[in-house]
C-alpha cells in the first residue's frame, strides 16, 4: 500500500466499516452465539469480544471474504474456546450430575426393556412446527455433558468435518463416534421420557 507510512491517514482499513457493525451484524452474531451456547449473557459477551478482536485485527483483513464471514469466523473461534474450556479441566456441575444409563444389555447388545424406543407419533410431521417437541429437544440438549453437546452442535449446526471437530476439541476419531452415538441415544431417550 502506497500510504502505509503516512501517519496522517488513520489506520482504518477501507474494506471494513466498524461504525456499521452493531447495526448490521450484532443481532446476527448474537443469534449465532446463542444457538451454540444457549446462554444469553455469554452470547452478549461473545459479540462484544468479537467486535473488539475485529477492531484489533482489521488492518490485517484483506477482503478475501465478506465482512460478515470474517466476523463470524472470529466469533466461531471464540465459541470453540468456550467449548474447550467447558469440556476440559474441572468437571462442571452439569457434567457431574449427568447420569449414565445402561440402554443396552452389556452381554448381547439388546435394548434393555426400560429404554426401548417407542414411536412418538410425530415421525412424519414437520418437527419445526411442533413447539412442544422443540421445547423438549432444547431441554434435553442442555442436559448433555458439555463435550458431547459441543461435538453435536459443531456437527449438526455447523456441518464441520469430523477431522476439524476432533482436532479443535481434542478427541480421537474413535471417541468421536462413541460420543455421537451416546449423544443420540441419550437425547432420544430423554425426548421419549418427556414426550410420552
Amino acid at each position: 500500500m502506497q500510504l502505509e507510512n503516512n501517519k496522517e491517514i488513520p489506520a482504518v482499513n477501507n474494506l471494513v466499516e466498524p461504525q456499521q457493525w452493531v447495526h448490521k451484524y450484532a443481532d446476527y452474531l448474537y443469534t449465532f452465539a446463542f444457538n451454540r451456547t444457549n446462554d444469553e449473557e455469554l452470547s452478549r459477551d461473545l459479540v462484544q469480544e468479537t467486535f473488539l478482536a475485529a477492531l484489533q485485527g482489521m488492518n490485517k483483513f484483506e477482503g478475501r471474504s465478506t465482512e460478515s464471514t470474517w466476523l463470524t469466523a472470529i466469533l466461531k473461534n471464540k465459541i470453540i474456546d468456550v467449548y474447550r474450556r467447558k469440556s476440559s479441566g474441572l468437571i462442571n456441575r452439569k457434567d457431574a450430575e449427568f447420569e449414565q444409563h445402561n440402554f443396552f444389555d452389556q452381554e448381547d447388545g439388546h435394548w434393555n426393556d426400560a429404554y426401548r424406543p417407542q414411536l412418538f407419533g410425530i415421525e412424519h410431521e414437520d418437527p419445526v412446527l411442533n413447539k412442544e417437541f422443540i421445547h423438549f429437544l432444547q431441554m434435553c440438549m442442555q442436559k448433555l455433558p458439555s463435550l458431547w453437546l459441543s461435538v453435536f452442535t459443531m456437527k449438526h449446526m455447523d456441518d464441520e468435518s469430523t477431522k476439524t471437530i476432533c482436532s479443535e476439541l481434542n478427541v480421537t476419531p474413535a471417541n468421536f463416534w462413541v460420543i455421537i452415538h451416546r449423544t443420540k441415544v441419550n437425547l432420544r431417550a430423554c425426548l421419549q421420557k418427556n414426550w410420552m
Binding site: 444457538n35 418437527p127 422443540i134 453435536f152 449446526m157 432420544r188 425426548l191
Partner: peptide, 21 residues
Amino acid sequence: QQSILINRTVKELFQHRQMKL
C-alpha cells in the same frame, strides 16, 4: 426414524431462529 427426525429438527430450528439484542 427418530434419529433422523432429531437431526433434521436441529438443523432447521437453528437456521430459522432470529434473536435480537
